[in-house]
Amino acid sequence: MGDHKDNGINIDPAYVRALAELLDDTQLSEIEVEDGDRKVRVVRTLTAAPVAYAPAPVAAPAAAPAVAAAPAAAAPAVDSFADAVKSPMVGTVYLSPEPGAPNFAAVGSAVKAGDTILIIEAMKVMNPIVAPAAGTLKAVHVENSQPVEFDQPLFTIS
């Protein structure tokens, strides 16, 4: 009853779901499994693709100070977020795995590449946001339970 027949191949939906969960757990974009005549490929669209647009907003404020001297005071604030990890999606930020639990990481603590720093909940899905590289967590630019927008600075590691 759980198997579906498609082009002469039995497909187990639970197996496909398990592969999809594996993609989420490992943050891979696709997985392909072959077993004799069976070949199952599961692909997900990464939310990181829009991050390619991140350099454009950073470049635009750099041109603004050349137009007028007054915005120069705002330039350091923009520069302080230049190295920040930015939100790949719109959602709600959670700094700890559950209410009342300690935060994933504290400012000043050492983090390894791949360590979860915070979670963004989007459409009832908890998306871990991880450290892109090893270093020290210098700043967290958001508060717990705060809504965030795409490309909003989340934290800085150096």
Rank of each mutant, 00 (worst) to 15 (best):
S109V: 01
A66P: 07
D6W: 15
T92S: 07
I157R: 01
A68Y: 15
A70F: 07
R44V: 13
I129D: 02
A62F: 10
D25K: 15
S158F: 06
A70E: 10
L22Y: 09
R17T: 12
A133I: 07
V58Y: 04
A72V: 13
P50E: 03
E30Y: 03
L23E: 05
T26F: 04
P61W: 14
V42K: 00
V51T: 13
P76Y: 01
P97D: 10
V93E: 01
D24Y: 12
A48F: 11
P147M: 11
D6K: 14
A106Q: 09
A66S: 10
V148P: 03
T47G: 11
L154S: 04
P102G: 08
A68W: 14
A73D: 15
M126I: 07
A49H: 11
K138H: 00
S87H: 03
S145Y: 05
A101H: 10
A68M: 15
I9E: 11
L137D: 03
L95A: 05
A133Y: 10
G8W: 06
L154E: 00
I129E: 05
V40H: 06
F81M: 10
S96H: 08
A52C: 06
V43T: 11
A122N: 06
I129A: 02
A56T: 13
V58M: 02
P76T: 01
G91R: 00
Q146G: 02
V42G: 01
K112G: 11
E32T: 13
V93W: 03
V51A: 10
I157N: 01
R44C: 00
S109Y: 01
L137N: 00
F150C: 04
V33K: 09
L19I: 02
E121G: 02
D25G: 15
E34I: 14
M89V: 06
M123W: 03
V125H: 04
P13H: 10
A60V: 14
V43F: 00
S87I: 00
S158W: 07
A73F: 12
P13Y: 11
M123P: 06
E21H: 03
A59V: 15
E98C: 02
A59Y: 09
S29H: 09
G108M: 04
R38I: 14
L95V: 02
L19H: 01
T156C: 08
A73H: 15
D79I: 10
P57W: 13
I11F: 04
D79V: 11
E21N: 09
I31A: 00
A14Q: 09
D83Q: 12
D83M: 03
T156R: 03
A63V: 12
A77Y: 13
I117N: 01
V130F: 04
G135Q: 08
K39M: 13
A66Q: 12
F104Y: 08
Y94W: 01
E32S: 15
A131Q: 00
P102N: 03
M123H: 08
A74I: 06
V93L: 02
P71T: 00
L154H: 05
P55A: 09
D37R: 11
E34M: 06
A68Q: 13
R44S: 09
A18Q: 14
E98H: 05
V51D: 08
V33L: 04
Y53S: 10
V16M: 04
E21D: 13
I117T: 05
K112N: 13
